[in-house]
Structure formats: structure tokens, C-alpha cells
Design a binder for these strands. Structure first.
Lengths: 261, 261
DNA sequence: CCATTCGGTTCATTATGTGAACCAATGGTT
DNA sequence: AACCATTGGTTCACATAATGAACCGAATGG
């Protein structure tokens, strides 16, 4: 692995739960030598990607990322488009709609919109990393990834989030086949115990998968009617968004195959 | 310069005017070898910091920065940053530093920090609403507001807080012109009789004004030296905070116009 | 149809990053 | 107060990993 990769991958250890990380801690998490970690952090700090709280204290993400994000948003108004698409999807289904983006080998949540139709709803966490095997979004994306990436993902340890999480590679591959056939991935309680979610992949101009759009509903509220509604709306909104982003569904994608599978 | 620094500094070449940059172009701008540039961009791309538009096309900022920005936002609330910036500004000047935020058509104080250097100091009131025409913060913000908002503010009744408060719309517009030229607004006794304050606007990622940072000193203590110090420090701290918040000064902002730092 | 671009690749050279060991400082335990 | 286990940070001999001139094939375009 190159030096730059190591430096950038340090940034991945920051999360909502761990917004600040000390030097030794960071070295431990990343598996790098402490001296190496220090120099990498120093380089990141020099460019404003991380900063230190006080004097000789922990590191956290720096202001440079805000600047870059603003520029990215100015160049690619994806967030705006996603927001309106999610709003519409959430309105149509009465459930939580969210959108995640594939970044390298990771899938991270970009944004979400709640519906206010019901007193209960599935809550989302900002900028969360989604496991491929445990979420509908993950399955939707993985199904259309290159085979070598699927292999890579499935040979890594697969965390058993709940008792219903799929962790057997063979079972997951079977699920991916299903996704390929219907274009929609489904996960019942794989991530959170009482969440039933559907997801559909999004594609770029080269018909590569770039992320997924999903609807998450409480298991208790799921009925055949709601399920049909969600699948219909999801199909509609996801293909619309793919098109709006200038992307195309791949040839083998069951775009208008049917509406009730 | 280390490899990581070089890689990260590539990202600095993206801007609003140049959101997409080709490989050769990037090599030229950065002064690095084309092969080096390629490998650095590849590393950045692998982590999602840049992405390529089509097939073999230009590079632009990638989605990873969005994720990091979201985490930064969650980890570092605006209030904290304001507090440290104000503390530093107050320490540097020996006077009261405060920060106000534009909320709709009102300017409200977010926080303030006193200096303990002198026995007398300008006192602030929590969450106070600041009149645009009577305070340096108000003038600083108003100067960079859209014209229709300026009109709205100036046609409303303008309270004469002290005998020195500007209430003539024409005089205020003249003051705004001054602010535009120097980037700093000044008010002597306009709000409280013996308060001399300087303020500088803060901007968001869309270069819209979001508030102002200010230093307030007793009129009796103001000397040419102190004034120069305040202007210098204010300029420094305000632009820093704007950057730290991921914002940009608008093009017409006199960022480094004068003042030897 | 030649001349430039472009993005991307190769490979010998060496500069650059690496990590075990080592500080000095801090803080909790006894 | 002596102790031990931490912390963030530094050093330096060593070898890995970055470098850049030259090269490629594919688009451009005059």
C-alpha cells in the first residue's frame, strides 16, 4: 500500500462515535507504526485535513474537508438532487428514504429524509458506513459490483449485526442473484432488528454502480400492499435519479421487467 | 516535501472556476512529474477523494470529501470554533470579542469573550439582537447582503440609540461602501455611547454572508496603535474562521488589500 | 497525414518512508 | 514518593517505495 493510501485511510477511523483520536490510539487502530502514524498525521495536519484540539491533544477532522466538500457540491450538485429525490420517495411511501454512495470499497450514507406520516420511523445516522452483507443498500450495490470486489468483500470477516444478518458467503451470493433478477435488494432485520428495507442500485454514465437508494420501514408496519408500493416507488425514483445524474442502468439490469416480484 | 503533502496539495488546484482538471493539466499546475501526478491522483481516486468524469477524462473532487465534511460538522459544532476564535482574538487585542449570526433578517449574538487585561471592558448581553444600522457587526453584515435586503432594512424605522447613531439611509449606504472597500466596519458610539467597535463579515461555502466577528473597546482606550492592532487581528481571525467553517470570501472582498501582517 | 496533444505505463535510480528503540511528561496505584 | 503504564513525540540505520525521462496508443486538429 502506498504512503498516500495509508495517510488517507487514517481519516476513515474518525466516526460519529469516535470524532477524536489520539496518536497511539490511531496507530493501534490502523495497525501502523506509531512513528509512521505521527508523520502521516503531521502531513494531514499541515494541509488542514486534521487538527489537534488543544496542546498535545487528540486529533480530529480539520476544516479543509469542509472547503473541499463545498467545492465538490458546487461542481456536482448530487446532494441537492438526492435530497429532492429522497423527499419525493419518502412522501410517496410514508417511510424513511435514504441514499448511500460507493467510495472505493466502502458504502457510506449521503443523506436521508424522514416521513412524518407515522409516529414511528426508522432513524438514520449521518455519514454512517453501511456493511455490504447486512443492509439492503449494501446488497443492491454489491450485486452490480465487479466480481473481484465481491470476492474481496465476502472473504473479509462479516459481522453478525443481528441474529438475522447473513454471514454465510454462499447465502449472500444467492441473495445477490436475487437482486440481479429483480433489481431490488431486500433486508429484513439484517442491520437493525426491526427494520425492513428495500434498496435499488444507482449507476453512472459508464453503467457502473455508484450507490443505492433505499426505503426503510419498521417490520411491524410492513404489509404486502406497502411492500408493493415501496418497490414501485423505489424503482421509479431510483431510475429517475440515475438518469438525472447522467447515468445509465447496465444492459443486464431488469429495468422495466415487471412491477411485482 | 513528503508524498502525502504533494497528494493533498493536488486537491488545492480544484476551485469554483476549475472544478475539473485533466492529468497533464494537473501536472503542469502542480509542477510535478506527470507520472507522479498520475500515481498521486490514482491514490486519491482509490479513496474517493477524486473521481473521473467519463472514460479517460478529467478528474474532479470525489464523494469522500462529503462524508468527511459531514463528520467534521458533527464533531465540531460552530459554537466551539467561534469560542476558540473569539478567545484568541480577545487575547490578542485585550478587548471584548464577539460573534453574531445572521438569522433571516435579524442579526443575533452567538457568543462573546471578555479580556481581563483592563479593569474596564465592554460588556455584552446574551443572544442580543443587533441593529444593522447601529453596530459595526450590523454594518459589516449588511454591506455584503443582497440589495433587496439592504433596501428592506433601510426603509424600516431606524432607532436612534445614541446621538451618534446613523439613521440617515444615505449616510448608512455611504458607510456600507466604506465597508466594501476595506472589508471592515467601524462604529464609534453608535450603539453604546462610549464603545468603539470594529467588525468583519463571515461567509459560508456559497460566499454568502453568515454573520460577523467583532472587537469592542471603550472609546477612551482607542488609540491609533490599538486600532491598527484590532484591524490586523480582526482581519486575521475573521478570515481564518470563515475558512475553518468551510466558507469563502466573495470575489469582491478586499481580502489582502492592505495591512502588513 | 503529420504533429500535438491527451491519459497512462515502464523501469533503473535513489530519495523517501519506515519502525525499534528512546525521550520526557502525565497520571493513576500503592 | 517511588512506581508503572500510559501518553505524544523524536531519532537514525535501513530498505521499501516514490521518482521521472522516455515511451505507448489513441484522440484530436490543422
Amino acid at each position: 500500500m502506498g504512503t498516500v493510501d495509508k495517510a488517507l485511510s487514517l481519516l476513515d477511523h474518525f466516526s460519529r462515535a469516535q470524532p477524536e483520536i489520539g496518536l497511539s490510539d490511531m496507530a493501534r487502530r490502523s495497525g501502523l507504526n506509531k512513528a509512521t502514524t505521527f508523520r502521516l498525521l503531521a502531513a494531514l495536519q499541515a494541509q488542514g485535513f486534521v487538527e489537534q484540539i488543544g496542546s498535545g491533544r487528540e486529533y480530529r477532522l480539520g476544516p479543509a474537508v469542509l472547503r473541499l466538500a463545498a467545492l465538490r457540491e458546487a461542481a456536482v450538485p448530487l446532494r441537492d438532487m438526492a435530497a429532492t429525490a429522497l423527499q419525493s420517495l419518502s412522501d410517496a411511501t410514508g417511510e424513511t428514504a435514504h441514499l448511500s454512495l460507493l467510495q472505493g470499497d466502502r458504502l457510506s450514507m449521503l443523506s436521508y429524509v424522514y416521513s412524518h406520516r407515522h409516529g414511528t420511523r426508522v432513524m438514520m445516522e449521518d455519514a454512517q458506513i453501511l456493511a455490504f452483507h447486512a443492509t439492503s443498500s449494501g446488497l443492491a450495490v454489491l450485486a452490480f459490483c465487479p466480481p473481484d470486489m465481491i470476492d474481496r468483500v465476502l472473504q473479509a470477516p462479516l459481522e453478525k449485526r443481528t441474529e438475522d444478518t447473513l454471514t454465510d458467503p454462499a447465502a449472500i451470493r444467492a441473495a445477490l442473484d436475487n437482486v440481479h433478477r429483480s433489481g431490488i435488494a431486500e433486508s429484513v432485520g439484517g442491520f437493525e432488528k426491526d427494520v425492513h428495507s428495500h434498496a435499488m442500485p444507482l449507476f453512472d454514465a459508464q453503467t457502473r454502480v455508484i450507490g443505492a437508494m433505499a426505503v426503510a420501514a419498521p417490520v411491524a408496519r410492513m404489509t404486502p400492499d406497502l411492500k408493493a408500493l415501496i418497490r414501485r416507488e423505489l424503482r421509479h425514483h431510483a431510475t429517475d435519479l440515475t438518469r438525472a445524474l447522467g447515468g445509465f442502468c447496465p444492459d443486464n439490469f431488469p429495468v422495466n421487467r415487471d412491477l411485482k416480484d
